[in-house]
Amino acid sequence: MYTLLIALGALVALTIIFGAVLGFASVKFKVEADPLVEQIDNLLPQTQCGQCGYPGCKPYAEAIANGDDINKCPPGGEATIKQLADLMGVDAKPLDSAHGEEDVKKVAFIREDECIGCTKCIQACPVDAIMGASKVMHTVIIDECTGCDLCVEPCPVDCIDMVPLNDTNWKWDTLAIPVKNVN
């Protein structure tokens, strides 16, 4: 009986001591980190395209922080999923094709002679990358366009195309080298 009490007492003492140490440490050595949502948001590509089903990247970041899947972002693709997996400490999984496929980078292009100046695309653009006013031709600021696709649907005359962005960075890829005969 006595030994039992000693054991119990020791355990209780240990509990109190470690609890105190841990509590102290959690206050004293608190790591000041960005809130999780901010960190997630920083990893997302900020196209604000809504393909994930949320109205923008920030809302999706919030959703991920609350436990949503990390594989709903087609513009970010595998790279973003991997980074999110690292951050969230979960396994990376393939992109959920229900939300779209990873594609080459595109930007919106307005066929200007067909634009009627309805401003609908301007209202749709999440990053204000379309210039123009009512009843005058609109145009896309290519550098600001995230390629989110959201302006295409509202256009009443369908004069917006998504064109692949001409990638200026040659990646030393080894494909498509022609064979030449010399003599």
Partner: peptide, 17 residues
């Protein structure tokens, strides 16, 4: 470059909101 662009996009998006 992408990071710069996405930061800009984020900023613009938030400004717009």
């Amino acid at each position: 470059e992408d990071k710069i662009k996405s930061d800009k996009a984020k900023e613009r998006f938030e400004a717009r909101q």
